[in-house]
């Protein structure tokens, strides 16, 4: 979070200085007509090292945002810059994890989390020669999330929470600079979820990652993020941003403090508003 002066770039190929991710006036349509717009007029700036959460009603294009930033989908209008360069094509310094852990059932935990190393350069070509070092690296990562004793277990032998830990490890194994999470804890029970919040917070502190978390859980967003963005219903755009300025390190106890609860409440109000506005907003379009 450096206090660097922002200046517009006239050439359009580079983003503004000091910003790690910059989404600028982006529209994305899945089809030809305006009805199929998933996001419209989307603007979002993320600094390096920031933890950003995006919340919003279901179907508002939160996942589309992830696809835009990772380069899986090109914007129909506008531009996305990551690390100063305009995104065209995928970015291998990104790690991704979804709600569905999608571990490979024929691989054990250790080999599952090492899968990205078989794909991303320069690891791909070094993997065979420096096997020992990479194994050490992977085991260290498993240790930080408490999976060390399970490295030779297969996915069906792990609980849902453990699979999601492994999923996080797989997203982080190639030391990405940007971690994109799409409701990673959505399918877990409340206790496991809170446990994993702490795991993620620890990982982020240890690795100085930039994280974008898409979630519908407001407590999760406030607990983990530095800034929470509220998205409108489809076509999605950012309607509100809230800095989470809670003092000190957050623990699960923090979730019960008035300041925390106030922020969750405030965000809840915004979500309620966009949920009610949504249909009207669409109805307004023809008359506008």
């Amino acid at each position: 979070m450096t206090a660097q002066a922002d200046h517009a770039d006239p050439h359009g190929q580079t983003g503004r200085a000091g910003l790690f991710v910059e989404i600028k006036d982006v529209d994305l349509a899945y089809g030809e007509d305006a009805e199929s717009l998933a996001v419209q007029g989307l603007n979002l700036d993320i600094r390096e090292g920031d933890f950003v959460a995006v919340v919003g009603p279901s179907g508002c294009g939160k996942s589309t945002l992830l696809k835009l930033v990772t380069g899986l989908m090109p914007p129909t209008q506008g531009a996305v810059y990551v690390d100063g360069n305009r995104v065209n094509g995928t970015l291998s310094f990104v790690g991704m994890a979804f709600q569905n852990p999608t571990l490979l059932p024929w691989r054990n935990t250790l080999r599952n989390i090492m899968l990205p190393l078989e794909i991303v350069e320069p690891h791909r070509s070094r993997l065979r020669r420096e096997k020992v070092a990479y194994l050490e690296h992977a085991r260290n990562l498993l240790r930080t999330v408490g999976l060390a004793p399970y490295e030779s277990k297969h996915p069906w032998e792990l609980s849902g929470g453990m699979r999601q830990r492994a999923n996080l490890c797989r997203a982080l194994i190639h030391d990405p600079r940007l971690l994109m999470l799409d409701e990673p804890f959505g399918a877990l029970d409340a206790f496991t979820r809170e446990e994993l919040w702490c795991v993620l917070a620890d990982l982020r502190r240890a690795k100085q990652l930039t994280v974008v978390l898409v979630t519908h859980d407001l407590r999760e967003a406030v607990f983990l993020a530095d800034t929470v963005y509220v998205m409108s219903s489809r076509p999605g755009r950012i309607v509100h941003s809230r800095r989470v300025d809670l003092p000190g390190t957050r623990t699960l106890e923090t979730c019960y403090e008035p300041a925390f609860v106030d922020i969750v409440h405030e965000l809840r109000g915004h979500i309620e508003r966009v949920r009610c506005d949504g249909p009207q907003g669409i109805a307004d379009v023809p008359t506008a």
Binding site: A97, P116, A171
Partner: peptide
């Protein structure tokens, strides 16, 4: 093949052939 897994691998720069060999065929 789960579409999420395909996304995870495509982001890393995996080609169609790599996805086929690492995931599709074993699957």
């Amino acid at each position: 093949i789960e579409p999420e897994l395909e996304d995870v691998l495509r982001v890393l720069g995996a080609s169609k052939l790599t996805i086929l060999l690492k995931v599709g065929i074993p699957n």
